[in-house]
């Protein structure tokens, strides 16, 4: 009787510890989502309709169309099709845009900091009231910095 009681207590204790540990060391890494995310171009441009590559990866895991990513283009669609054979296609023609980088016209920049906030990959350097400039190597060409600029001084250039 005591033996059985101890056993139950032990099992309960271990379960409790596991529950605590799982909450403590919780990982929200779904391997499928991670694998999908690795195929996306990480431009964070939101052209797919989701607010970034990770959210699109999550949507894909839940069954979204695989041909919504313009920067990735057809190669990405092919690789996603291998990963997610059951996902549908939206049927729209996916045009891969030419690689481009943002360029700030330094004559017109007033240093408002809005583009720096908007850049998802920290590719714009500068400080409030000081001129900003784009680090061309780091720019993914997502165009997210273009609309917030009050001076309309950001253009996309093909390198």
């Amino acid at each position: 009787m005591i033996g059985a009681f101890t056993l139950v207590a032990l099992v309960l204790g271990v379960c409790g510890m596991l529950a605590i540990a799982s909450r403590r060391f919780r990982t929200d890494e779904d391997p499928l989502i991670a694998a999908i995310d690795a195929q996306l171009p990480q431009t964070q441009c939101a052209q797919c309709g989701y607010p970034g590559c990770r959210p699109y990866a999550e949507a894909l895991a839940a069954g979204a169309a695989i041909d919504l990513c313009p920067p990735g283009g057809e190669p990405t669609v092919t690789r996603l099709a291998e990963l997610l054979p059951d996902n549908p296609r939206s049927g729209e023609v996916l045009e891969q845009p030419e690689a481009s980088v943002a360029f700030i016209d330094e004559e017109r920049c007033i240093g408002c900091y809005l583009c720096i906030d908007a850049c998802p990959v920290d590719a714009i350097v500068g400080a409030p009231k000081y001129m900003h400039t784009v680090v061309a190597n780091d720019c993914t060409g997502c165009e997210l910095c273009v609309p917030p600029c009050p001076m309309d001084c950001i253009d996309m250039h093909t390198p």
């Binding site: 990480q42 964070q44 590559c53 780091d138 993914t140």
Partner: peptide, 17 residues
């Protein structure tokens, strides 16, 4: 190069977020 850019972009995006 594109794979490296991807990893870098993701790293900077995570920091930004």
């Amino acid at each position: 190069a594109s794979e490296r850019n991807k990893t870098e972009a993701l790293r900077r995006f995570t920091a930004h977020e």
